[in-house]
């Protein structure tokens, strides 16, 4: 029998201050502890060094489609990039990126293209998409050259939230922001498209780590921010298994929905079946018994 895969949920009590901003000390501790627990290493730097080589060019794919209130904020992604540099990775070989400069700016990022850490969208001068569509199963898309050409290793640093079409959006669906035509894959609750896109060699072979930003979880009426159904969850979720991370994210959203008296995603006919499809494609695990969930507060 195969060993269970690890998913780590670290809760940072007080990470969201009363004004809604993020406590930099607590968020850093959450990253460090999550990576330690996930990799079994004595420090976060050692843990990350077990995942990335110093020569890697690492892409941190954030999700900034929903503006400042429900995107991966710089307060969460910048500490991760700092930790990565502690493994010997050069700052200039780390890029925090998403689809467009506009969306990054609206989420609070300051674009950077100099000799240090890079932050920009696929639509920035010098980036762009592959010249020809990559064709794989039901996918036919141009892929961001940031993912296709620049990075050798990638982190999906996604926001965990309800999604009106997909059921939920988390680590795998975050890569919809890496292609030019995500709107073409919203049929059938994005199934099998999310899974098949992740299965694209340019994504699957480079993906090393999923981190779900669950500081605030939009458990209903996502993917944009809606205060009525947003829960201060104060958590980050870590996994090396992209499917298991999303599966746990799905369970969290279902639990929150149930607690608030909302119907399940299945009852709303938008169960994120792409997670099961991903499991069938061999991309990871999507069953409670196959996953070791480690939860800790910092």
């Amino acid at each position: 029998m195969m060993a269970a895969v690890k998913v780590v949920r670290v809760r940072g009590r007080g990470v969201l201050r009363a004004e809604g901003d993020i406590d930099p000390v607590i968020i850093r501790r959450m990253h460090e502890r999550g990576i330690q627990l996930l990799t079994g290493q004595s420090s976060a730097a050692a843990g990350l060094a077990s995942l990335f080589r110093p020569s890697d060019r690492v892409g941190i794919k954030v999700n900034t489609i929903a503006g400042r209130r429900l995107s991966t904020p710089p307060e969460v992604s910048l500490p991760l990039s700092k930790l990565l540099t502690q493994t010997g990775l050069l700052e200039k070989n780390i890029v925090i990126w998403d689809r467009t400069n506009d969306e990054l700016k609206e989420a609070g990022y300051k674009l950077q293209a100099g000799s240090g850490l890079r932050i920009f969208g696929t639509d920035a001068m010098g980036a762009g998409y592959t010249q020809e569509p990559l064709i794989h199963l039901n996918i036919g898309s141009l892929l961001s050259t940031i993912q296709a050409d620049f990075v050798t290793a990638s982190v999906s640093l996604a926001v965990l939230k309800d999604h009106g079409l997909a059921g939920i959006t988390a680590g795998m669906k975050n890569y919809f922001g890496a292609i030019h035509n995500p709107n073409k894959y919203h049929d059938s609750n994005c199934n099998p498209y999310v899974a098949e896109l992740f299965d694209l060699p340019e994504i699957k072979a480079k993906h090393r780590l999923t981190i779900l930003d669950a500081l605030v979880v939009q458990y209903h009426r996502g993917p944009s921010y809606n205060a009525r159904w947003a829960e201060r969850f104060e958590s980050l979720i870590f996994s090396l298994d992209p499917v298991a991370a999303d599966f746990i994210g799905w369970q969290i959203i279902e639990r929150l929905r149930k607690a608030k008296g909302l119907p399940s995603l299945s009852e709303e006919k938008r169960e994120p079946l792409y997670i099961r499809t991903a499991s069938r494609l061999g991309l990871g695990r999507a069953a409670v018994n196959d996953i070791q969930l480690i939860e800790e507060d910092v």
């Binding site: 400069n101 674009l111 639509d123 762009g128 998409y129």
Partner: peptide, 10 residues
């Protein structure tokens, strides 16, 4: 598709 916007342009 390759070079749409100057840095920061929208």
């Amino acid at each position: 598709l390759q070079n749409l916007y100057a840095f920061g342009q929208t």
